[in-house]
C-alpha cells in the first residue's frame, strides 16, 4: 500500500458544535506506534473517538487506509472498521458474557474458523495479556486492571492492522504495564501492526513511541509532535517540557 495508513487532515473536534481542538493534522505509517499525550481533559479520548468514526468531526477528515470513515456507509464502513480494534478507556467489556466469550464474539462473527480453533485463538489472546486461567470469569468479577487487559485482548481478537488503545496501562502495576509495552512492541515488529495509543506513562512513552503528538487545551490543538526524546530535550514550549519532566504547573 502506498501512503500513510492513517491520515488526519485539518480535523476539528468538539461537543455541541463547540470545537475543543482545531486544525489537527498528522499521519501514521504502517507499523508505527503513535502516542497521543496531553493533560487530563484536553480531548485525547475525544480525538480518538473521532478517528474511529464514533463521532463526526466538526471539520476536516480522517482517512484510514485511504477511506474516510465518517463519509462511508454500509459495507464500505464495515470493511474499514474491520481493519482496526479499539480498547476503550473504561474497558467496555460485555457484562453478560464471560471473558472468553467477550474475545470469541468477533471471531465467531467474522472468521470461518471452527469452534475449537476460535477457542484456542481467544485463549492465546488472553494469555498474551496474562489472563490465562480467568477465561470463565465475568467482567464484573475482574479487577480494574484485569478489565483493561481483557479489553486489549478483545481489541486484538481479529488481528487488526491498527490498534487504538485508550490508556492501556493506566492503573496497572509497573510490571504488568511493562508487559503491555512489550506486547505492543512485539506486535508492531513481528506483525507490522500500527498503534495509536493514548497514554500518560512517561516510561511507556519512551519505551514504545516512534512518534508522539501532544495536545493542549489552551492552544486548542497540537503543540508538539515528534520523537519523545526530541520533545523532552528540545521543545521550546514550557508546557511540553513540564509534561516530560513531570513538573507541576506554576
Amino acid at each position: 500500500m502506498s501512503g500513510p495508513l492513517i491520515s488526519v487532515q485539518g480535523l476539528a473536534v468538539g461537543f455541541g458544535g463547540q470545537p475543543l481542538l482545531e486544525g489537527i493534522g498528522f499521519e501514521v505509517e504502517q507499523g508505527q506506534v503513535l502516542v497521543i499525550i496531553g493533560e487530563s481533559g484536553c480531548g485525547k479520548t475525544l480525538l480518538l473517538k473521532n478517528m474511529i468514526g464514533l463521532y463526526r468531526p466538526l471539520a476536516g477528515r480522517v482517512l484510514i487506509a485511504g477511506t474516510d470513515l465518517a463519509a462511508s456507509e454500509g459495507d464500505q464502513r464495515r470493511a474499514v472498521q474491520r481493519k482496526f480494534g479499539v480498547a476503550y478507556q473504561s474497558g467496555a467489556l460485555f457484562g453478560s458474557m464471560s471473558l472468553l466469550d467477550n474475545v470469541r464474539l468477533p471471531l465467531e462473527e467474522y472468521t470461518r474458523l471452527d469452534d475449537a480453533a476460535i477457542e484456542l485463538v481467544a485463549r492465546l489472546k488472553l494469555s498474551q495479556v496474562g489472563l490465562l486461567g480467568s477465561e470463565a470469569k465475568m467482567p464484573a468479577e475482574l479487577s480494574g486492571g484485569m478489565q483493561k487487559r481483557a479489553a486489549i485482548a478483545r481489541a486484538m481478537a481479529l488481528d487488526p492492522a491498527i490498534l487504538f488503545l485508550d490508556e492501556p496501562s493506566a492503573g496497572l502495576d509497573p510490571v504488568t504495564a511493562a508487559g503491555i509495552d512489550q506486547l505492543i512492541l512485539q506486535l508492531s515488529d513481528a506483525q507490522g501492526i500500527t498503534f495509536v495509543v493514548v497514554t500518560h506513562e512517561l516510561a511507556s512513552i519512551f519505551a514504545i513511541a516512534d512518534r508522539a503528538v501532544m495536545l493542549d487545551r489552551e492552544a486548542r490543538g497540537i503543540i508538539a509532535a515528534g520523537k519523545p526524546e526530541d520533545l523532552r530535550d528540545h521543545s521550546p514550549h514550557p508546557r511540553v517540557a513540564r509534561f516530560f519532566h513531570r513538573e507541576a504547573a506554576p
Binding site: A116, A117, L120, V121, L124, K125, M156, A157, D159, Q191
Partner: peptide, 10 residues
C-alpha cells in the same frame, strides 16, 4: 498473525 499462531500452537 494471532490465528496463525493459534494454528501452530494447536
Amino acid at each position: 498473525d494471532g490465528a496463525g499462531l493459534a494454528f501452530l500452537v494447536d
